[in-house]
């Protein structure tokens, strides 16, 4: 190509327009850039995620079910989570909230120390006609805002559908803590990285239940695998009336609730 020493303004604009239109057309064409991140089966086996000890992450898709009508607010789940995951004092990966609501619509909500020591009698200052407990935790959303905002690729979703944090990658910027509409994340004061519920990934990959589910004495917390057709949670989700938290945020949470009230967000 001949490089011109003198280009008139007219010529320059004409060529620029040509180039812009060419780029636009190329952009519309159905050209697919090969996905560099496509899962490689061989490397998955190497990483211990497939076919090792019978655990294959492609064979699972987990969901969590909380029946608030069964929750007695003992806080054993919070205690078990704290011990299992070595959660620092005053921080919670799961917590239990107490709601007391009057006929006139007054609402009292509390969660003393996340409910880790249970609940004592309280005086909301009005005559509560409706009262219940709501256990909360990371919803492991399908369209999660916390992964979107992570600038270093420390937050990610696994094939089984859980949202995890790589504490080695995490720089502790706290964007994800702000992005989570459920308040499920915190900055761990010891590691200074983002911390959250993992649905006890180290337990479920060994065929155990998450610590909170195991600790629940009333069966208010249930953990299930949607890819298993005999799974209890899958059957309940298919047959019961189920609620989710903050459906308007379109995050598609995978913690499902039975017996939610309009005051619970």
């Amino acid at each position: 190509m001949k490089i011109m020493d003198n280009v008139s303004r007219r010529e320059f604009l004409k060529d620029g327009c040509k180039l812009a239109s060419a780029c636009m057309i190329l952009n519309v064409l159905p050209i697919k850039i090969p996905n560099a991140f496509a899962s490689d089966e061989a490397s998955a086996t190497q990483a211990g995620l497939e076919a090792k000890d019978g655990y294959n992450w492609g064979n699972h898709y987990y969901a969590y079910l909380i029946d608030t009508r069964k929750c007695i607010g003992c806080g054993m789940c919070v205690q078990a989570c704290s011990r299992e995951n070595n959660v620092p004092d005053g921080f919670f990966r799961t917590w239990v909230e107490r709601y007391e609501i009057s006929e006139r619509g007054e609402v009292f909500v509390d969660s003393p120390h996340g409910g880790i020591n249970g609940f004592e009698a309280t005086n909301p200052g009005f005559n509560a006609t409706k009262a219940f407990f709501v256990p909360k935790m990371c919803n492991h959303c399908e369209h999660t805002p916390c992964i979107q905002v992570c600038p270093v690729g420390a937050s990610y979703a696994t094939k089984e559908g859980m949202v995890l944090v790589d504490s080695e990658r995490c720089v502790g910027c706290g964007y994800c803590v702000q992005a989570c509409p459920y308040g499920s994340r915190f900055i761990n004061p010891i590691t200074h990285t983002a911390d959250k519920c993992t649905w006890c990934y180290h337990r479920i990959t060994k065929g155990l239940k998450p610590a909170c589910v195991q600790a629940c004495p009333t069966g208010a917390r249930k953990f299930g695998d949607l890819k298993d057709e005999h799974d209890e949670v899958r059957k309940i989700l298919a047959s019961e009336r189920i609620g989710i938290l903050q459906a308007e945020k379109l995050t598609k949470p995978k913690c499902y609730y039975i017996g939610l009230d309009k005051e619970v967000r």
Binding site: S43, G153, Y156, A157, E168
Partner: peptide, 27 residues
């Protein structure tokens, strides 16, 4: 890290690290 991008926009070896954490409650 070398395993970054192995399965997605994250460090692939972190999955094995998360799995390797020891179980505290036995049931």
């Amino acid at each position: 890290p070398t395993s970054f991008g192995q399965f997605g926009f994250y460090r692939g070896t972190n999955l094995a690290e998360q799995q390797a954490k020891s179980v505290v409650h036995g049931g």
